[in-house]
């Protein structure tokens, strides 16, 4: 089924808050509740909506997290290129994201752990010794200003007048 503007409106709303009741969604998309439910079902079936998940502040939950970006130089394998080694690395739960990149390094890995020691030992003992890995560079993340489109600081908006011409 082709997507239309109503679908995109639903997706825009859900991307920001996937927990809204169907009644509210119906109002915001100017549809009936049945239409909303049917459209969402199709979007789920088609894999347009891939997952609903909570955004957790682990620091507040008593389990603070540290993260680092690991850049890897990799010798590509005949017939497989970077895919096989990338899939191997991606299996680790410590790896939050993994990308093939252009430039000096080949793979960029975001690794999380409870402390720096966990991360460095993970890199030294699990990643660096793998076949085809030629070089690693570990970059500690010191402060996150923006993630997934959300800034972690407020841009002070000017006060709007309550009434304008």
């Amino acid at each position: 089924m082709a997507m239309d503007e109503k679908d995109r409106i639903l997706l825009t709303i859900l991307e920001d808050d996937s927990n809204l009741p169907v009644r509210n969604l119906a109002e915001m998309a100017d549809l009936s509740e049945e239409e909303v439910a049917a459209r969402i079902r199709i979007l789920e079936e088609q894999g347009v909506i891939r997952k609903y998940r909570a955004m957790v502040d682990w620091e507040k939950a008593g389990e603070p997290e540290v993260a680092a970006i690991i850049e890897l130089k990799v010798s590509p394998e005949r017939d497989f290129g970077y895919d096989k080694i990338a899939e191997r690395i991606a299996r680790f739960s410590q790896v939050r994201s993994l990308r093939l990149i252009s430039g000096v390094y080949d793979l960029q890995v975001m690794v999380v752990g409870r402390n720096i020691h966990e991360i460095t030992s993970f890199v030294a003992e699990q990643i660096a010794p793998m076949d085809h890995i030629r070089e690693t560079a570990t970059i500690l993340i010191m402060k996150t200003y923006k993630e997934n489109g959300h800034t972690f600081f407020e841009r002070g908006g000017g006060d709007r007048l309550p009434i304008s011409l």
């Binding site: 709007r160 007048l161 309550p162 009434i163 304008s164 011409l165």
Partner: peptide, 24 residues
Amino acid sequence: PSGIRKFFDLVQDREDIVSLGVGE
């Protein structure tokens, strides 16, 4: 004078106003 502006004086001193008066 602007008819909208007349309302401005009523709104100015109040807290907790939900303003649907702003054309911007």
